[in-house]
Amino acid sequence: MFPMWPRTKAHSVHLLTASGAVFAMFSLLAAVEANWSWMFLWLLAALFVDGIDGPLARRWDVQLHAARFDGVLLDLIIDYLTYVFIPVYALYASGLVPGWIGWGILTVVPFASALYFADTQMKTEDASFEGFPGCWNMFALVVFVLQPAPGVTLAVALVLSAAMFLPIRFVHPVRTVRWRPLTLTIALAWMVLAVMAAWGEFGLSGAWAWAFGLTSTYLLAAGVAQQMLDRLRV
């Protein structure tokens, strides 16, 4: 009865994905003005879009009904801006990683991430990530909240940059089936805590800070835990 409806729904997913570019621009403007709270709020809005456009694309057969636009390529372009470019700029411009330490992060992280985002084998058979998936937006927010010593931030950034190219598994909160209910719950909890942190000028304390740290640790380590369990069963 409505032959255009499947195509309309499919193209609406591309429009949703493309909205992430607008959020990236707003985030960049906030970063240039050193308004770090709003910068992260816009990045979190982009992260939310990135979390829901994939399931919608698969549900509404975007590759069939809106094949003119490459949703994967569109997603990667926006992700590089919101996951890598803007957060790394923020780490340096905020003064949290000053001097040669900041220049080290400015050099290594965008370089390694550009290679990783072009990796055609970044996904495993269970839809997890092969190597650290370049979530520097999440990393930067943790640094803003915890404010570790600059040397510690650099060391962790170098380890995670190397981990992009190692056979280490990282879960996809939506697509990795194993532990998905738990992972989705923790990912949503992390998002709520992240909004609280950004809105409150990164002043999480007490139980909220512990919850933020624990949820971050789970999202970082769940894939490795799954790998270890698989090896123990062999």
Results as ranks from 00 to 15, higher is better:
Y116P: 05
Y116S: 11
F117M: 11
F117W: 03
F117R: 06
F117I: 10
F117Q: 08
A118I: 11
A118R: 14
A118T: 13
D119V: 02
T120Y: 07
Q121C: 13
Q121V: 08
Q121G: 06
M122D: 12
M122P: 13
M122N: 12
M122H: 13
K123W: 03
K123Y: 03
K123A: 00
K123G: 01
T124R: 07
E125H: 03
E125T: 09
E125A: 01
E125W: 00
E125L: 03
D126C: 04
D126T: 09
D126H: 01
A127E: 15
S128Q: 04
F129P: 00
F129D: 02
E130S: 06
G131F: 02
G131Y: 11
G131T: 13
G131V: 07
G131E: 07
F132H: 01
F132L: 03
F132R: 02
F132P: 09
F132W: 11
P133S: 05
P133T: 14
G134Y: 07
G134I: 11
G134D: 03
G134R: 05
G134Q: 08
G134M: 09
C135A: 10
C135M: 13
C135I: 15
C135Q: 15
W136K: 06
W136V: 01
W136E: 03
N137I: 12
M138G: 09
F139P: 04
F139R: 12
L141F: 13
L141G: 02
V143Y: 07
V143I: 06
V143S: 08
V143H: 09
F144I: 10
F144P: 02
L146W: 05
L146M: 06
Q147D: 11
Q147S: 06
Q147Y: 06
A149D: 12
A149T: 14
A149R: 10
A149M: 10
A149S: 08
